[in-house]
Structures are given as structure tokens and as C-alpha cells.
Design a binder for these strands. Structure first.
Lengths: 345, 345
DNA sequence: GCGTTATGTGGTATCGCTACCAACCTATAG
DNA sequence: CTATAGGTTGGTAGCGATACCACATAACGC
């Protein structure tokens, strides 16, 4: 690592190769170099060849920071997810990443760790980086955050839920409808005492919507809503196992359990295997989100398929359209969900 | 979304709020605003209060693109992983993200999709964005890529393997040693016919190192190296199941199988459950990488624990140190690994 | 009292690129 | 042969911040 740039001294002397350098060596003006690189069709073949040769010779990489400042377009989109680690978000990020890359955009990813107060700070930081679009998973936002976004005047997509009043655009599914549909499905399969294990409810509209959907379905099924059948658990295999055991012990007549998180459901399933409880003979298990894993366990697990990749892809496509000049109209796309009936229910 | 910035016209008129605007309204010079924001201790209380008030009043967010151009520091680190979707990388990214955030750095993540030729393009793009540091998972690089990185003169960390000749710094473990240790472990447990299922070998030094480790251990154990006992499979539950079945059918005397990818191992385990093959009675199963899942399956699965989070954390810390001025010396950190003996072997 | 060091503040000159306008060249029509 | 249009090219003036220097003021020693 030679010649570290350490201050103004090095700026003029050993500074980076600039467009002017390339221009000088190619015998053209800097503007021609700029055009040859960003819109090759706008310069003549002769010029383009000269520029390309010089670019290759010096291994020139244009400075996009300068380009962004000048053009007021950063070509970076920001992403705030509750947890990079969760494979559900990973599937969405992957899809966004693919579409972004195909359109010459870069991704800046930030992790809110499910903390609402951090989201605001992260969005501020991304806006300071002048991202040209933003994807937020959360859809409960502080007032200040909404103001920030309004002032920033960039396209924003919410993906975690279908908010009643989206900030700008939303691509998601209804957590309420999904949980209601699955609970209803269990009821129609004949289960009478259906437990529900929810992920933490604090600062999490998705969790709350799912619980609301569960209760709505019970009412529709004409089943009593027993608060004792509802447990809150942080995500995790052990927590799912633990929740199931507690429900079975406190409510021996429980015949089905709906887990609002896939990992919880799998943890519970393994616990049943360990204890020799037949699934679905002793208790049926249903899950939320179609982890690949659920298709391979023994028994396979009934679940809700949420098209996470579609959410990512369509979000990115909407952003790209806007950046290409589409008129800024509120869009609210419901990607829907699907009940996948398998052996566990 | 009112007043979209559309070209030079809007630049002067309805343009963004700048430091000069804040300075004017606070009755100080732009430089004082700059200092009040980036190094509050360097200005007097009186000035800082005036600046803070104006900043709050206008909801001013400094333009970091301009800041980066001027200071030649982008405060963005680039990350190239084979797959965002894979939870192993996710754990590493998460750790990097945490350390980065604590140090005011942002993350730009790119997905190489295990394609070597894409890695070069992605690194170029990140360098054009003038990232101030780079983390690469892959450690087989094209000649042109190495040249690019040398010219860029920024800290680079490789995390996928411990290369003999790192570009700059490496934080990883030895895939060879790990695979060798696990194979040796199986041998010492008394298994005689040990199969090996590898992930794709093409363009993947990690996979090749693991296979090398497997063969080395067989030699040390005095067991014959039967190429028929080695299968290559793309990652996936079904692929793991399939590989196991094929090995058992072609080599009925096989008594253990080592999977170089965790998902493969779990797929195989489920297949055994389905077919009623006792694990480890009929066949023992060992895995690579300590997915949380492996601690909860029935039976639990013997595996190699690779400290993915540590890799991320230490990589980020090394980058941060360098950016804070640490001398650029080659560092090669071996985070090691650990054999986790469980019920499946 | 005056020189000397701290400390805080402002002015100026970039950073490397792109938008815009003006100038130029080559065709084609009249 | 001149006028007009179309297509390329170059010059200039920023984009919004920071580094560096210069300067003013306050604090200190002898």
C-alpha cells in the first residue's frame, strides 16, 4: 500500500487519475471523455476509440462521487430492514439487489434491529448520503421520520405490511388477512382449540396485525377467543419448542397451534419429535412464511407462502421506473399470499 | 412529491438547503457550520448553539456526497459476498454492519452470485463509488482484479479462506484444516467408509480446500480414498437427500457421510427420517458450519462451528483501525474452528 | 508592557465531474 | 454559392462541502 493520500499536499501531486488526465492523453476535451463513458452513442467512433484506449491504458475509474455531486443523482438506493440475518429479508434483499444491479444502481443496507428509534437515525444517514430511493420494511414511523422523507422528495417503498396511509408506495401483503386465512383454514380442517404464538408485539405492526387476524378468524369460526391460548415469544427454535410445551401443559385440549414465525414452528415440530407427540395426531402445527426448510421436515409443515422475492423485485422495479421519470403517483401493490397445506395439519 | 429537481434550472432556485444557507441564518461562516457539525468540540458554545438552532429549524441534512468529494473520504465500505441469501454470509454481514455503524460507516453490499467474472465488475463499481475499504469473501481473484485493488490503495479484507498470499488482510479459517479435522474425527469415532458430499468446486477455492482436507485425513487415517464416495451437489435440502441416497445405494457399506454444506446435511437427515434409516445407527451424518438449526434437529447434528460473526466483527474492526490511521501491514487472522460433537455421529 | 502561544473564526481554493451554451463542422436544399 | 439544419465538440460555471492558511482575539510569561 504505497502513497497513502494524506491531506491536501498529496492532492495536486500524486492525486487520482481524473477525466482531464484521460482527456489530455486522448487528445480530446474532458467533456468528450465524460460523454464517451456515460453515453457512448453521443460521440463519434473516432473519439470513442481514443477515449477507450486512454481509459484502458491508465485503468481509469471515473469518480462517481464527483459525478453524483455534479449531476445530483447518486444511483444508490437505501434499504432499512429489521434484521439482515433473517432469511426472509435476505430473499427480498437478494431480489432488490438483482434488479438494482441490472439498472446500474447500488445498494446501501442498514439494519434497524427492530428498534424504531434507530430507524430514524439510519434513514437520516441514508438521506445524508443522498440516496435516490428508499425501501423500508417497517411501516410504523415516527412523525419526524415522515417529515424527513417528505422533505427529501425521493421515492419510498414500504414492504412489511400494507399500511392504510402509505408514505409513498407500498409493496406488500396483508398480515391481518394472512393470519386470518390460516386460522380459518385450521378451523375448517376441524381443529377446535387453536393456539397462537406471536413474535414480539412491541413496535411491530406486522406482529400485531397477525394477532388481530387470528382473533378475527376465531370469531368468524364461532370459536371462543381464549387469551391463554396466545403466547408471545422471541423468534428462535428453543422459544418455539418452549411455547408449544407450555400451551400443551396449560391447555391439554389444544389440538392445533399456529406460529407467527417460521423458526418458532420448526422448533416446536422438533420438540414434538423429541417427545413423541404425533403431528398432526396429537397437535397440528402451522407456520407463517414459506421457508424452504418447511417443505423438507418430517412431517412437512403447512404454512403461508409470502412471495418475498416478488416483493423485492417489484419494489426495485417501481423505484427504477420512478428514477427513469415515471410520474410520482401513490402505488399500493398487494402481492397476496397463499396457504400451503402440508402434512402437519 | 412536489418540486422534482429536473435539471439545472432548479439548481439555483428551489435547490437543496446548503451549509451556506444555515450559515447565513445562524449568522456565522459556512466553515463554522462545517466544524460545528463534524467536530463540535472545535467551536465555541455560543457558535454551536446558533448553528444547532438553525440546523434544527431547517431540518438540514449535510450532503455527504459533497463532503466525501471534498475530504476524499467516503465513509462507505464495500462488501462482495457470493450470496446475500445464504445465512452464513448474513451472520457475517450483520456483524460487519454493527461495527460499521458504531463507527459512522455505511455499507454497500454486492452479490457476486458465485460468478468470478461478476466479482470483478462489482469491485470496479464499488471502487468507482470510492469506497474506503473492501471486504471480499472470495479469495481466488482475476489478475485484473488484483491490479485494480493495488491501484485503489484501500484496505481489503478476504474472509472466505486463508489465502497463501493475501491481497492485503485476511480474516478467516482454514477450510482445509476444518474438513481434515472433521474427517479425522469421524475416523477416530470408528467409521470406516466415510462419504463426502461437496458443494460445487468450480471457481470456488473453499470447496476445493475442503475436499483436499477430506482426502488428507483419509490418508492419515489409513483409509482408502475411494473417488466413488465423493459426490458434488449444488446446495439444497433435496440435493443433500439425493446425494445421500445415491451414496448408500452405490456403496451399501458406507457408514458415515460428511457434508460440506449445512443445508445438504439437513436434507440428508430428513431423508433418513423419512426412510427410517437410523442416524447414526445406519449412517452417521456430519455437517460443515454451525447453523442454529443443527442444534435442534432430531437427532442433533455433529458439525464444524465456524465463528462467522467473529469474522465479520474482526474484519470490520481491522478496516476501522486502518481508516483511523493504523499502519498498513499485512494481517492474517485465523479465527479457527471447533468440532461440535452431537448425536448424529 | 510586549512578545508568544492558544484558541476560535473566516476566506479562498479546490475536489472531479456534468449541465448548459456556444462554436464548429459537414450536409443538403434552394 | 449561400442559408439552414443536424450532429459533434469544447469552454465555462457550478454541484456542496472541506483543507489550509490567515487573521483576530484571549491568555500567559517575564
Amino acid at each position: 500500500m504505497a502513497g497513502k493520500a494524506n491531506g491536501r499536499k498529496a492532492r495536486n501531486g500524486g492525486g487520482e487519475i481524473t477525466m482531464s488526465d484521460i482527456a489530455r492523453h486522448a487528445g480530446v476535451s474532458p467533456m468528450t471523455v465524460s460523454r464517451a463513458l456515460s453515453d457512448p452513442a453521443s460521440v463519434s467512433d473516432k473519439m470513442r476509440r481514443k477515449v477507450d484506449a486512454a481509459v484502458r491504458q491508465f485503468g481509469y475509474l471515473p469518480n462517481r462521487i464527483a459525478g453524483s455531486l455534479s449531476s445530483k443523482r447518486s444511483n444508490v438506493i437505501g434499504l432499512v430492514v429489521p434484521s439482515i440475518r433473517n432469511s426472509l429479508y435476505a430473499a427480498m434483499i437478494h431480489a432488490i439487489s438483482d434488479v438494482a444491479r441490472a439498472n446500474g444502481l447500488h445498494l446501501m443496507i442498514a439494519n434497524s434491529g427492530h428498534r424504531l428509534e434507530d430507524e430514524e437515525a439510519l434513514v437520516s444517514a441514508l438521506l445524508a448520503q443522498r440516496v435516490c430511493g428508499l425501501v423500508l420494511h417497517n411501516s410504523t414511523h415516527s412523525k419526524r421520520l415522515r417529515e424527513l422523507l417528505a422533505r427529501a422528495d425521493i421515492p419510498v417503498i414500504e414492504t412489511g405490511n400494507l399500511p392504510a396511509k402509505p408514505i409513498d408506495m407500498a409493496v406488500s401483503y396483508s398480515n391481518f388477512d394472512a393470519a386470518r386465512a390460516m386460522t380459518g383454514h385450521l378451523g375448517r380442517l376441524g381443529y377446535k382449540r387453536i393456539g397462537f404464538v406471536t413474535l414480539p408485539l412491541r413496535d411491530n405492526d406486522r406482529s400485531r396485525e397477525r394477532r388481530r387476524g387470528y382473533f378475527a378468524a376465531l370469531t368468524e369460526l364461532g370459536l371462543p377467543a381464549d387469551p391463554g391460548l396466545v403466547l408471545e415469544a422471541p423468534g428462535g427454535f428453543a422459544e418455539g419448542a418452549d411455547a408449544l410445551v407450555r400451551l400443551v401443559q396449560t391447555h391439554p385440549d389444544i389440538d392445533a397451534c399456529f406460529f407467527a414465525g417460521d423458526v418458532l414452528a420448526v422448533g416446536a415440530l422438533f420438540e414434538c419429535q423429541r417427545r413423541g407427540w404425533a403431528v398432526p395426531g396429537r397437535i397440528a402445527i402451522a407456520s407463517f412464511d414459506d421457508l424452504d426448510l418447511l417443505r423438507h421436515t418430517v412431517p412437512t409443515v403447512t404454512t403461508l407462502r409470502i412471495p418475498r422475492q416478488d416483493i423485492g423485485r417489484r419494489s426495485a422495479e417501481l423505484l427504477v421506473n420512478r428514477l427513469h421519470g415515471a410520474s410520482p403517483q401513490k402505488v399500493r401493490i398487494d402481492v397476496g399470499f397463499e396457504i400451503v397445506q402440508r402434512e402437519s395439519t
